[in-house]
Simulated assay, not measured.
Amino acid sequence: MNLRFLETFVWVARLKSFRLTAEKLFTTQASVSSRIAALEADLGVKLLLRDSRGVSLTPEGSKVLEYAERMLDTAKAMKQSLGGERAVVGRIRLGVMDTVIHTWMSALVAELTERYPQVEIELVADTSLNLRDQLQKGFLDVILQTDLLRQESIRSLDLARYPMGWIVATGSPHHRDYASLAELARERIITFSRNSRPHQEVFSLLQSAGSETPRLNCVNSVSAITRLLRDGFGIGALPPALVAAELARGELVLLTGLQPPPSLELVVSWQTGVELVDEVVGLCQQVLGRYAQDVGVQRIVLV
């Protein structure tokens, strides 16, 4: 029996909300619904009832909840007993670009904290350019950014691609059809910080479409980009994964019919010979894999 499905069921039963459970487990409501449906199919009974008042347990659900909580407690105790004598201590210095912060970073930190409770996590959020510089100077141990690094003491692994898109505020003057990228380029475009890889690729794409001087407004904060887009400031060139909630609520919309910007690459790079680094890289792959499974290929594509 899948423990992740049991954990999801327990949290839905406690919080009485699919939305709050999705936030708690760093996943989507669709993924929560899918896990509950799979668990119900496995057990052959209906566990939950959903109506206008919320979520409630069926009589069978109440019985299953008791066993599910015991099973999760047993699994947790087993893991703690196996790791108690060889608990890892120390510090890991982790650098991440803003795109990761706003997608699956919380799930990674939660997993790191649970697996290595005595390890201090030093988290740095910065641009890919600055993160690479800090890794090369030895100030960081692991970074999640956009480019493969080739250096004697550094290793890199290509992890995934974030599909990009053209995103605008629903009902704003920018929410209309565009005949070409050249016409789009006459509007105010909002994208990542200057000299970043996505900025350079968006600039090159619009230039190749016939715009000699595209108006690119460079912002190094995803939160600031999102706010500007919601206020109708311009057209965003960024991964839809970063504004999934705003798209779902209908506040923002993805323009269709135009060539999107090149996908945003996601690379993990790390200093060799540093304690715990290999384990952290492996954990990044595991957590990212679960995130990708939850959100689908429209939001991220694993390499």
Rank of each mutant, 00 (worst) to 15 (best):
R155N: 12
D126I: 12
E246Q: 12
M105D: 00
R197K: 15
R249P: 00
W104H: 04
Y291F: 15
Y291V: 06
R19L: 12
L43G: 05
F9S: 10
E85Q: 11
N220S: 13
V32D: 06
S31G: 02
Y291I: 09
R227A: 11
Q259E: 15
I235D: 00
L144G: 06
L247G: 02
I189N: 06
K16V: 12
L15K: 11
M164P: 02
A22R: 04
I235G: 00
D147E: 09
R230V: 14
F203R: 11
H199N: 14
V88I: 14
T28P: 12
R215I: 00
Q80R: 15
T170H: 00
V295N: 11
S193V: 14
L184V: 15
P173W: 00
L264A: 03
D177H: 07
L108G: 01
V89E: 15
N217H: 09
L229I: 08
I121H: 12
H199I: 03
E183N: 06
L148H: 13
R155F: 01
L254Q: 13
E69F: 02
L206E: 11
F26D: 03
W104V: 07
H102G: 01
F5Q: 05
K79Y: 08
I189K: 03
V109W: 09
L258S: 14
Q151E: 12
R194G: 03
L264N: 08
L266S: 03
F192H: 15
T191N: 09
V64G: 01
V88K: 07
D147Y: 05
Q298H: 15
T103I: 01
R230F: 05
L6A: 05
S211G: 07
E187T: 06
T272S: 14
P117K: 04
V124A: 02
L266V: 04
L238E: 02
R197T: 13
S180N: 10
C284E: 05
T113F: 04
R188K: 14
A248E: 13
V253Q: 09
Y291H: 11
E114F: 11
P117S: 06
I143Y: 02
A185K: 01
L276H: 13
K24P: 01
R249G: 01
R161S: 07
L140G: 02
K76A: 09
R299S: 13
C284I: 09
A37G: 05
E251N: 07
N130T: 03
T170S: 07
R86W: 00
Q207Y: 06
E187K: 04
L48C: 13
L112F: 14
D51H: 02
E85M: 07
R91C: 08
P163Q: 14
Y116I: 01
L48E: 04
G84S: 10
Q293W: 13
L255F: 10
D133H: 10
A13D: 01
D231Q: 09
V267I: 09
A209E: 02
E7R: 05
E40P: 05
F192A: 08
S156Y: 02
L49I: 15
R299Q: 14
R249L: 07
V303D: 12
R91N: 08
E212S: 10
K63L: 15
L206N: 05
V274M: 14
V295Q: 08
E111M: 09
A107Q: 12
V274R: 15
Q271Y: 03
R188Y: 07
D158P: 06
G83T: 00
V277K: 01
V119C: 04
V274G: 09
S208M: 11
W104S: 03
S153W: 07
E66A: 06
F26C: 01
L57I: 10
E40N: 01
